[in-house]
Structure formats: structure tokens, C-alpha cells
Design a protein around this nucleic acid. Structure first.
Lengths: 182, 182
DNA sequence: CAGGACTGTCGAGGATAATCAACAGGGGCG
DNA sequence: CGCCCCTGTTGATTATCCTCGACAGTCCTG
């Protein structure tokens, strides 16, 4: 999380505030601010949140700016895709893992026989995908359908939804979610 | 920073990962993950960053989702505007301070006589404003102009820029910056 | 039912974040 | 100059994060 200190200092000085003044407004000690700005310690989420609050910022704005920039490259080899699931059940391989400030989550999914997704909290997003191999039972709200190669889906993530592999072998889906509230 | 734990747990379980598995991938101990998920401690930025990385997420995505939602209200009284500058030099009063995931920063600025902005790092953004009162010398790149009531500006923030109050009294500007890399 | 592999929680310790109180370096002003 | 008020840095102490290992519960398998 490099650059946190430099960015914080830029924010503070731009407002013409001293460390002590910012400390008083945020409830964090001025020495802590000094150490954070010089990258000599990594603040807790609570601490950083308090400081950003006094500067009129939020965590998301702060890190959105920090992590912004163009991706390092446009192409990703199959072997490079980062695994964020578990291959023995449901493998989720992330496309464009080093794209800094993504607006979309694209995944190559691979379901082991019988694998089922966990119940998820409702979130405002749109989710679409297409089955590439096998057979997947998709439930959205009160509707259920078995999708096979070539079949697709598109729904609002706010509705309760789940996926279950009903093929005796492996099933594969390519999916996209936006915004990436994954 | 409430909800961090719940959101983290949702992310982990959705991928079918146990605490120990996530601990191994992130390099953070499973007990720390347990404590964080139950909101019994506030992780450091480094720690949370490591965990999110193993889940294929970034800080900005994580907090963007966490802080999302509709604003509590559409109207803000003059007295309510939050001060993020210093009234004796340059006062910056934030409009819509509780708008959760803003794409824009709008400020009511008030310059004391002789006040000057600090040098700022280059950032990719657009900045516009209009002078309401007094006289402000605005420098953008190699150009300088003195703007008075009714005069306005619009420039790319990547160019070095600064503001200086050249009025014997107080000068006022209403400005907007997007995205809010402030 | 016993054994194993998994789940998450808990307690004691060491590592680190955060605080408080000094300290040192500018300017400005009488 | 000598004093004041500001700036940010540093050392010693306390509080908190973080780790390691132990513990208890669940589920599957022999």
C-alpha cells in the first residue's frame, strides 16, 4: 500500500493544514500522522478513516485515486489468470487482475461435479454469463432453469440467486458482473 | 468503518474459502481474519490490502461498495457545510459531505487577503469554477489571469496550477472538480 | 463409534500501531 | 537579538494488532 503517506500529505497540505490541526479535527495524534505520512507505519482502517473524514474524503475516493492508472497490459495468458476460488469446488479465475480501478468483474468459472454457490448478500449489480460446457442449474428469485453449452443468463444481483452444477462432469461458465461488488 | 468484517466474510464465503485457506493465500493469520470478520479489531491498511489481494479485490472496489448507497438528503444549509480548510487563510466548505460515493467535489471557497494555494501534485482531473466576489489571480501552466466576480475557469488539473487572492478583502469562488481526486 | 479433516473461536505472547511529551528548526516581530 | 508561535520529528510508554498454538464443533469415512 505504498503511496498512502504521500497522498495523505498532499491532501493535508493542499488544505493548508498542519499536522496538529488535522490531528485535532480527526482525533488522531499528530505523531501518528507524521509516521503515516513518512510510510513508517501502516494505519488501521479506523485510523485512516478518521483522518480522511476530517479531510472531507472517503476511503473509496482515496484508494480509487491511489489505485488509478492504466493497466500494465491488455492481454492475459490462460495460465496467468489468478485463482480466487478453490479448484476442487468452484474455480474462479480472474481476467485482468492487474487492471487498477475496474468497473467490471469478468471471471472464467469452473464447477466441479455437484458444486453449489454459497448464499450471498443482496447487492445492487447486474450479472450476466454464458455456459460453455456441462450443465448448470441457475436459480434467480423463484425461477430455476438448467443451462447447457450456449445458454446464457442476465439478471439483477439484488434478487437472491445461486448456481449448481448438475452435470456429472465439470461445467464451465464465463461471467461478468458490474459494478464489481464481488 | 463498520461493516468491513461482514463484507469481508461475504467475499470469502462466496468463494468457498475457509479462514485458513484465505490466511495461507494472503499471508495473514487465520485468527486475525477471524477477529476482523467479527469486527473485534480494525486491520491495518497493509493487512486488509493483503487479504483483499488474495480475494482478487482492491481497496477502492471494496470501499466503493461499502460506502455506496443513496445520500441521506438532497439539501444542505449554509451553516451545515463542512469546513475542510482553514478559515483564517483559505476556507473550503464541502457541499454534499454525506454523499457516499461521489464522482465530483463541489466547494464553496473563501480566500483571506493574500492567501495562496499550496503547490499540488499532478492528478488527472478537470477543474472548473467561477469567482463570486473579490479578485483571484489564477495560474495554469504558463498563463496567469486575474479573475473578478463573474469570471470563470476550466482546466485540466494535470497542469500545474495555483490560486492567489489579490483583493484587499475576501475573495470567494465556487468550484467543482471531477473525479474527486482532492 | 473412532479417526481424520475440516470448520471457526479463543488465550498468551511478541510485534507494531498510536499516544504523550519533549525536542529542534524556521520565520515574524518587538 | 530574543521571544513567540508555528512547523515537523523523535523517544518512551501504552494500547492494539497480529501470530501461534490449543480448543471445540461439524461432517465425512472406515
Amino acid at each position: 500500500m505504498a503511496m498512502v503517506g504521500a497522498k495523505l500529505k498532499a491532501l493535508r497540505t493542499r488544505r493548508g493544514l498542519g499536522m496538529r490541526e488535522l490531528a485535532a479535527r480527526s482525533g488522531i495524534s499528530h505523531s501518528a500522522i507524521s509516521l503515516i505520512e513518512r510510510e513508517r507505519m501502516s494505519p488501521s482502517v479506523d485510523t485512516l478513516g478518521a483522518i480522511l473524514g476530517a479531510l472531507g474524503t472517503t476511503m473509496s475516493s482515496f484508494f480509487a485515486d491511489l489505485e488509478s492508472g492504466l493497466p500494465s497490459r491488455p492481454f492475459y495468458r490462460a495460465e496467468e489468470l489468478v485463482e480466487i476460488g478453490r479448484p476442487d469446488r468452484i474455480s474462479y479465475r480472474l481476467i485482468g487482475m492487474d487492471y487498477p480501478n475496474r468497473r467490471m468483474l469478468m471471471l472464467a468459472e469452473r464447477y466441479a461435479p455437484g458444486a453449489t454457490t454459497e448464499a450471498s448478500v443482496a447487492h445492487r449489480a447486474e450479472e450476466a454469463g454464458i455456459v460453455m460446457r456441462g450443465a448448470v442449474e441457475v436459480t434467480v428469485g423463484d425461477r430455476t432453469a438448467v443451462l447447457r453449452a450456449g445458454d446464457a443468463y442476465y439478471f439483477d444481483s439484488q434478487q437472491p440467486h445461486s448456481f449448481r452444477n448438475v452435470d456429472p462432469g465439470i461445467s464451465e461458465i464465463v461471467s461478468a458482473i458490474t459494478p464489481p461488488t464481488y
